[in-house]
Simulated assay, not measured.
Amino acid sequence: MTLAPPATRPVCGATIVLPASLVVRAVALATAHGGAAAEDVERHLRCLLQAHKSNEHYAFVLELSGAETGAVWARWEAGAPSRFVLKVLPDCPATDQVTHEPCGEFAGHQGGHTYQLADGSGLDE
């Protein structure tokens, strides 16, 4: 049995709380994909991209129903938290060739795939 190499690249880890007004917007974005409830929306957001020097952060907000629909993602800028943008983005198609673990980010994300990153926060355990 071949094991995948251990993940060693750190995640960004920037955090922010999704404003209540954007919870409503996230649910509205999901309407075209079968809908969602406000309880399904992630409110405590954390950038899990590979550590980066950019002020631009991304976090998963809401899974959409159906195959190949992607998810709702938030983008914000450090130092300008009121500049939130919510977008439906397709899933990253990458899969670890050893473990077959899919990447949990959006297509075209910067940095390594989630299965290549080490999250030292203990939040994912």
Rank of each mutant, 00 (worst) to 15 (best):
M1P: 00
T2K: 11
T2M: 08
T2H: 08
L3M: 08
P5Q: 09
P10Y: 10
V11T: 05
V11N: 01
C12A: 03
C12E: 02
C12S: 03
A14S: 12
T15V: 13
I16F: 04
V17Y: 06
L18A: 10
A20V: 01
A20Y: 05
A20Q: 13
V24N: 13
V24L: 09
V24D: 14
V24C: 08
A28M: 09
L29I: 03
T31D: 15
G34S: 07
G34F: 15
G35D: 11
G35S: 03
A36Q: 12
A36S: 08
A36N: 08
D40K: 06
D40P: 08
V41L: 05
R43S: 02
L45V: 14
C47A: 00
L48D: 00
L49K: 01
Q50G: 03
A51D: 07
A51F: 04
K53Y: 04
S54V: 11
N55I: 07
N55V: 12
H57G: 00
Y58G: 01
L62N: 04
L62D: 02
L64C: 02
L64F: 07
G66F: 15
E68F: 05
T69W: 07
G70T: 02
G70I: 01
A71Q: 03
V72W: 00
W73S: 03
A74Q: 00
R75V: 02
W76D: 02
E77C: 11
P81G: 12
P81K: 11
S82D: 06
R83L: 10
R83W: 04
V85P: 00
L86R: 01
K87L: 14
L89M: 15
L89V: 13
P90G: 09
C92A: 06
C92P: 00
C92V: 02
P93Y: 08
A94F: 07
T95F: 14
T95G: 11
D96K: 04
D96L: 08
Q97G: 13
V98L: 12
V98H: 05
V98D: 06
T99S: 12
H100V: 15
H100W: 10
E101A: 14
E101L: 13
E101Y: 07
P102A: 04
C103K: 05
C103D: 02
G104K: 06
G104H: 02
G108V: 01
G108Y: 00
H109T: 06
H109N: 04
Q110P: 12
G111V: 01
G111F: 02
G112I: 00
G112H: 03
G112P: 01
T114A: 12
T114M: 05
Q116N: 09
Q116G: 04
A118F: 03
D119S: 03
G120F: 08
G122N: 12
G122Q: 08
L123P: 14
D124K: 10
D124R: 09
